[in-house]
Amino acid sequence: MKRQVPIMLAITASFLPVIAFFFPNAWINEWFNRKLDEWMVIIASFAFLLGIVSMVQVNLHKVRRRQKGWIFSVIILVSFAIMASCGLFGAQGERENGTLYPFTWIFQFIYAPMQATMFSLLAFYVASASYRAFRVKNMEASLLLIGALIIMFGRIPFGALIHPVVPDLAEWIMRFPNAAAQRGIIIGAALGAASMSIRVMVGIERPYLGKS
């Protein structure tokens, strides 16, 4: 019973939107589409709570036991408490006098720069990964290298300075060879996803029950 009920629920919940997709009946649309969507929004919001509980538990545990790196857990818990308080009990945006509310201030001057910093690290990692990966080991790798160079030149104004055709060539590679390869992978992956979904829908695979 403990297993059958969730399986039945999962199977039902996965088939109802499919029915609503094809049959426009008002009742079906209301209950199989709109209501399920509303519930999905509510459940997704509650899932945050689940995550918060896990995060607080794990980090408190780490602090209590003075495990390796416990000081980072203290920082996480304090930051979480400050941000949550500002969000829950304070307003967002700008005050009448032009100053920012604490939540927006933290967001703009701490969170946003840290995020941008992390994302900008990509440029450095792309450089080191490209340095290792683009080697003319064989014919295919050489073609890959040539394609990469055309795209890299074509995506910056220097490309047009080398030759006016370079940006057009880069665009052509993006629109045709690139799009063709992307489509091949996307179609394969979409079918894989559909097949995976069917397995979950009919209960062959049940990751939500801990059975993979």
Binding site: S130, Y131, R135, I156, F158
Partner: peptide, 14 residues
């Protein structure tokens, strides 16, 4: 400029 740097390193590596 960063693209040029990366292109330089790729060519240098090769």
């Amino acid at each position: 400029v960063v693209h040029l740097v990366i292109i330089f390193f790729i060519l240098f590596g090769n």
